[in-house]
Amino acid sequence: MKAKKGMWVEVENIVLRPGERAPHLPEDTKRVPLVMWVKGFLESDVASLGDNVKVRTLTGRIVEGKLVTINPRHVHDFGDCVEELLQVGEEVKKELEKVLKEEDSDER
């Protein structure tokens, strides 16, 4: 897919390569680069994924980077059903019914 000027896209940049990272990092973090992603409106007329492009961000900054996503989607969601939590809900509901009944009869 090609991106056209003005489309909402995401660009990627390597900020620090593994050898350039801060001292005192855990080994697993030291081994990988520090990567940055920024979204904005594409400045160039057309571009393909992987091209080096410029974008205009929501604050109006111009940021250069590798085009990695066109029209990026928010992928987070409400997850799968977690049975363990459903069980908790059902259990406390039953307990509450009992408590409320007792309180009712105390009042009478």
């Binding site: 900020v15 990272r21 990092l25 680069p33 520090l34 940055m36 992603w37 961000t57 604050t59």
Partner: peptide
Amino acid sequence: YGAEVVQLTVGPELFYV
């Protein structure tokens, strides 16, 4: 809310950015 979000991988060098 209209903010620009700059996203990074794990690491305290966020402060540098």
